[in-house]
Design a protein around this nucleic acid. Sequence first.
DNA 1: TTGACAGGCAAGCAAGCGCTTGCGTATGAC
DNA 2: GTCATACGCAAGCGCTTGCTTGCCTGTCAA
Lengths: 101, 101
Amino acid sequence: MTDAVDAGADLFKALGDATRRTILDELADRDGQTLFEICGRLAMKHGLTSSRQAISQHLGVLEQAGLVRTRRDGRYKFHHLDTGPLRALVERWPIDREASP
Amino acid sequence: MTDAVDAGADLFKALGDATRRTILDELADRDGQTLFEICGRLAMKHGLTSSRQAISQHLGVLEQAGLVRTRRDGRYKFHHLDTGPLRALVERWPIDREASP
DNA sequence: TTGACAGGCAAGCAAGCGCTTGCGTATGAC
DNA sequence: GTCATACGCAAGCGCTTGCTTGCCTGTCAA
């Protein structure tokens, strides 16, 4: 286990931005959206004014982190949420399941 | 619930840095360390060369995120890991407990 | 009291990051 | 074919951020 250093650096970096977390929320609410759909719904429901390119770059970061998987069909590119990498995050530190503050 | 926007922004920001994650690893391994202890063990076990002030600032961010709680005793200040905020993180998106790709 | 130890505060700097701007490419409707 | 659509690429800019540097406060041992 050489170092076991920081398995999901990209994962944490991807989750570090508020816009990207909102994108994940959106994909959790409606999976398989295109870039333009995401842009529109972010503007409508969440009041985000980011440009299309900004959202595209965010999606690139999320995809690199493994949180989003894409599927091309013609000129459309659908984005799907993948919460698999989050499991590693959960298991990294011991979380008390009980204990309500 | 005005907006319910992004409950733990500080939390994700705190987890976004690799050094801070290593600090959490250290506290998970040995809870209740002082600043100098943390500095020493980070240098020894993880090869980090950051200064004392750098670590102190990281601990400040972690404390603000609620991941670290401190307790003063004389001139010593002990740092304790609190994984409570991580629960909110776990519950934000649906995580498939099964599913091995 | 003097000294070493543990920690805090604040300014400055360099690197990273998010965002914009502009142009380019591929697919489908007409 | 022509045009609009859906998306990609890359350079540039401003802000944030992590780190260093320097100095200061509080605590305990001698």
